[in-house]
Design a protein around this nucleic acid. Structure first.
Length: 503
RNA sequence: CGGGGCGUAGCGCAGUCUGGUAGCGCGCACGGUUCGGGACCGUGAGGUCGGAGGUUCGAAUCCUCUCGCCCCGACCA
């Protein structure tokens, strides 16, 4: 059913087509998440259920990132879910930053309701000290590091943890902002400031590498303004991506924490000169929010578009047949192709299920973003060909079965590059240099990134945010030195920063 | 917390104004015809209408209370 007919019925939930990006971007996003079987809202407020297909993508992300962390010398560990309130309090700015969104455990027991059915909290089981469900783990980890760090020889300490965290957000959006989410958080301790800064920047680079080369989402690397900094950090570095509606999405952050946490948790070490010093810290994280970025950066009105490197199924093969005999003939021809594809490390699914017809399968795998689809029917067998369709461009071609594996391999690489280039082109076409305030207000309504001069004050940043809802996404690391006038105040500025509305 | 909306079959909804046999589409089960871009026909299963109380001969429908969810705003590394 074409989308426009849905208005007649007053009910588009049954329509086969997705809402269009151009008509209702957020509805389009929600429908893709649901229809591609990535995740769903759970019965628990603000919390999602990540479904097997969505989780398979997350697992591929985890695998790639984890390998990169290991390659840069990090090891994994696991720390408690609960943070005693007194720990969280220790670093004041950190505490203030997270206080408003904490889930708090106050009791440890339930009992039968004396007035009837069900359970009630046992008032006699009140905890001596409340436990906070971690919104992030700096507090509990630095409290632990105190016992691990005595000498310069104990440093650097390079640890990562894969975990869930809870932030009691007032409004949630699946993958982009959920009350509970999955992430990794790296927490490192160093002997010198320079080394910690280097680590902070190195991990930002790792994130940029991952997001660009695996997720195929181009990002701008930069530094946050003091307003947007992580609570308790000296500097917050970030990577910012552009979604197809022109809004920015923070894809990862890497924080230089100075000695703030070492001082709050009294983590000191003896240096080579036998003097006591506080350790220098970093922390860095990416979350299941990246799933949101992946969806919003590439997908189209037919459904999800996945970069081959992260697609749980890279190639799907669909037989086209009438009789069981035809199917048997086709399957016989397909089997060695499947085996060869697997042998070169390509994940392939041969969907010979007979409960749906081929047309239905085509649409279904498009919706799920499978990068390459092959269709084989009796006609193909006669010609020694298969029909190969690529998800990114929706182009179809007839390809000889001879050498099909090399062809598919090359095609997957090409798709990976192509969707990155497409996203990069989109970002470039939607990034504007703006030098006057009227132009700024005008452009921000249309969407996209604005590269403009800023006088460096929080007052100006706040005023711009209040008037336009645009925030400074970052001060790009590669910003050219360029003197100019602040787009809002007219005061002196030494470089341009990136403004955008953000998720 | 303020404003708006919604809870009826697994999912999406109509029915509520004006009380009187609980319906439709999708999905599901079975049978058949189909099969190169989301097939069709037939048969069938499936609901104490979010919960509690009230009005009434009779409540999905009217009244009171209550629980939950969604959207907009405030909030948000």
């Amino acid at each position: 059913m074409p989308y426009y007919l849905c208005f007649c019925s007053g009910d588009n939930s049954m329509s086969k087509a997705l809402p269009k990006r151009s008509e209702n971007y957020s509805e389009w996003y929600n429908e893709i998440v649901k229809r591609a079987d990535l995740a769903e809202n759970s019965a628990v407020r603000g919390c999602m259920v990540i479904k097997p297909y969505g989780y398979a993508i997350w697992e591929k992300m985890q695998r790639a990132l984890d390998d990169m962390f290991k390659a840069t010398g990090h090891v994994n560990a696991y720390f408690p879910l609960f943070v005693p309130k007194s720990f969280l309090e220790k670093e004041e700015e950190h505490a203030a930053g997270f206080a408003k969104e904490c889930a708090v455990v106050t009791h440890y027991r339930l009992k039968g309701n004396p007035d009837g059915k069900g359970l009630v909290v046992d008032p006699n089981a009140k905890l001596e000290e409340e436990l906070i469900i971690r919104p992030t783990s700096e507090a509990v980890i630095w409290n632990t590091y105190k016992g691990w760090i005595q000498s310069w020889r104990d440093l650097p300490l390079l640890i990562n943890q894969w975990a869930n965290v809870v932030r009691w957000e007032m409004r949630t959006r699946i993958f982009l902002r959920t009350a509970e989410f999955l992430w990794q958080e790296g927490h490192t301790a160093h002997a010198t400031e320079a080394e910690a800064v280097e680590e902070t920047e190195k991990m930002l680079g790792v994130y940029a590498d991952f997001v660009e080369n695996w997720m195929a989402v181009p990002v701008i690397q930069g530094v946050k303004t003091p307003n947007e900094r992580f609570a308790g950090a000296e500097d917050t570095y970030c990577i910012e991506g552009m979604m197809q509606d022109g809004k920015a999405l923070q894809c990862g952050t890497s924080h230089f924490l100075g000695q703030n946490f070492a001082k709050s948790f009294d983590v000191q070490f003896v240096n080579k000169e036998n003097q006591l010093e506080y350790a220098w810290a970093t922390s860095w994280g990416v979350s299941t929010r990246l799933m949101g970025a992946l969806i919003m950066a590439h997908s189209d009105d037919q459904g999800l578009v996945l970069p081959p490197k992260l697609a749980p199924i890279q190639v799907v093969i669909i037989p086209i047949y009438r009789s069981p005999e035809d199917l048997a003939t086709i399957s016989e021809k397909v089997e060695p192709i499947v085996a060869e594809l697997k042998a070169v490390g390509i994940s392939v699914k041969y969907d010979d299920s007979d409960n749906q017809r081929s047309g239905w399968k085509f649409a279904e795998y498009e919706l799920k973003g499978v990068p390459v689809r092959m269709a084989i029917g009796m006609r193909d067998l006669e010609n020694g060909t298969v029909e190969v369709a690529r998800r990114d461009t929706l182009e179809k071609s007839s390809v000889s079965i001879q050498g099909i594996v090399d062809h598919v391999k090359g095609l997957l690489d090409e798709i990976q590059v192509n969707i990155y280039q497409k996203a990069l082109k989109f970002r470039e076409e939607n990034t504007y240099r703006v030098d006057d305030w009227d132009g700024f207000k005008d452009q921000i309504e249309k969407g996209g990134f604005i590269s403009a001069h800023w006088d460096g004050t929080s007052e100006t940043e706040e005023a711009i945010k209040n008037e336009t809802k645009a925030t400074i996404r970052c001060i790009p690391l590669d910003a050219d030195k360029e003197t100019g006038k602040c787009v809002y105040s007219g005061n002196e500025s030494s470089k341009r920063v990136i403004f955008a509305r953000a998720y």
